[in-house]
Design a binder for these strands. Sequence first.
DNA 1: TTGAAAGCGATACCAA
DNA 2: TTGGTATCGCTTTCAA
Lengths: 340, 340
Amino acid sequence: MKKITIKDVAREAGVSVTLVSFVMNAKRGKDGRLDCPVNPETADRVLKVAKELGYRRNAAAASLRSGRSNTVAVITTDISNKYFAGISRHIEDRCHQYGYTVLFGSSDEKPEKLDNIMDTVLAYNIDGVIVAPVPGGEDAIRKAVDQNVPVVLLDRDIESFTEVGKVLLDDVAAGRMATDLLLSKGFRKIEMISYTLGISSLKEREEGYRESMTKAGLTQDISAHYIPYGAARETITTLIKDAVKRGVEALFLPTYTISASVLAAIRDLKLDIPKDLAIVAFDESDVYNLYTTTVAHIVQPLRSLGVHAVDLLHNMIENKPCDTKIVLKPELIPGGSVEK
Amino acid sequence: MKKITIKDVAREAGVSVTLVSFVMNAKRGKDGRLDCPVNPETADRVLKVAKELGYRRNAAAASLRSGRSNTVAVITTDISNKYFAGISRHIEDRCHQYGYTVLFGSSDEKPEKLDNIMDTVLAYNIDGVIVAPVPGGEDAIRKAVDQNVPVVLLDRDIESFTEVGKVLLDDVAAGRMATDLLLSKGFRKIEMISYTLGISSLKEREEGYRESMTKAGLTQDISAHYIPYGAARETITTLIKDAVKRGVEALFLPTYTISASVLAAIRDLKLDIPKDLAIVAFDESDVYNLYTTTVAHIVQPLRSLGVHAVDLLHNMIENKPCDTKIVLKPELIPGGSVEK
DNA sequence: TTGAAAGCGATACCAA
DNA sequence: TTGGTATCGCTTTCAA
């Protein structure tokens, strides 16, 4: 099947390519009329011919000439990660509403990969990019900023960037909520397990934990343990066994992957939740409902995060004035894991 | 920052744009030399200048002129679905190895959305498309075929398409494996719960179940229940309560979402696995390890499915002869849910 | 090994 | 309301 161009449509419809271009780009107003300076009858004829011929616009040509592409890029660390997969879906849906096509990429927490993906998507003349930064990925992100491509940071902040949009969770509040819940249930020796990754969200969840502990006068009990991203099962088992031995009463687990690993370790050790150890986990998962006892956890408003990220990016692309930093509140879901 | 084009690089390096184009497209041979008819010293100078100037190729221009785009599209039903999220990640990785950029889209099991996304990606001059078909989505897929864009069907087959590639799970074998496991453990009254969606993979998993039951002489016990995709919790609870009352001993659950819902229902009803009901679930999940008893389940080789899909598509794009239908074997993971 | 020039398919500008 | 045409940045012939 031969490729149909705007020229073919113009010839068949007996009009100029300009007209065809106008018609093909016109959006329908609420009255069903096309918002372009074209005779409605002519427009209808063009539309009809285009359909008959099976015309499909060549995005490359349009993008080359106009400098825009109606495409945005979304770079997370791992599209197969529950959290980012969920957000990505909402981002995709919202982008379609605006008529944007979406390019997805996974940086795998590696700055070089982020840089690589950034080069690729910038070559596509993207109109904007939503990115979950990785430690050391500042240069890659600056490339977009330098090209005047609007950037929205998602999930993690980099404070040195001020000219970009930000959509974040109130991570300090999340840490406080989790800790306060445990305190309110009478637990005192509360510790947390986190990743060695130096990302802002984890640091702030820890900050919230520290704040609440301090306010409760338990400064001497504050203790955070760090495991590498993707740590071995034994590392965690050992950590838990040791914690119980030391008389730790409760744990705050600030990511889903940490939560799942710790729950597995607790199961292996045949410990009882919450008798031996109370738990507040993070993010959503069927696991929390199906575990022997339901697990209290902090949930992030995935839909809202995704929608706000796209809305903000869209405003930046269109140069509309707007808040460039959006911080959303987490929610606490109760569960048997904190009931003494 | 002004946009740097091939012309700027040419001027600064004192060569023609042709040379620059050659150099920028040359791949390094294994000896580290560029495989293009250019003086190595000239090439080095061009490379150096390009880097200094911060040159980045304009993908739209390249695609417009060459008719290719080094881009492939991947259309699943839902990128936030565990199964497709996992596969997508492997597809993405493999595509990067070949130098392809990837466009992702979710059809949401809706033919109109599939059609919509197909129109969008075809406008991008994509080199090929990997798609999980939805019932009624034949026309959308035919659009790609008609444009001579290579197509690989993933996860679900449509038999009427013969000129496309296919990468599938041996779903009949999966159904047999699950059923045979239950039979070997002494269960007789085995039923299954499936979706009303008319997709090939579910039909074949059921076929495998029926085959095994028939071979075991239990034809009269064969019984499959159908629930709509996204069914209400109560629907499932009622179904399970009724099944136990009827003396059903075991269930084969052919997708993760069905498995999770059924496990939740069983938990709500305070039934015991496997005493009241034995279970064989589908796909991978932390849930299966963390449930009160571990859950036996069938796993699909996600990595292999993704890699094969990309390899096959690549061969089709390059017109290399190859098998166009690849069927992979599932694996059985044992668990306490079938131990009487 | 190098370069000049045509042209991919759309948009944007200007003129009618 | 319409149409003519330059142009976006690159690849691809073809010739030197």
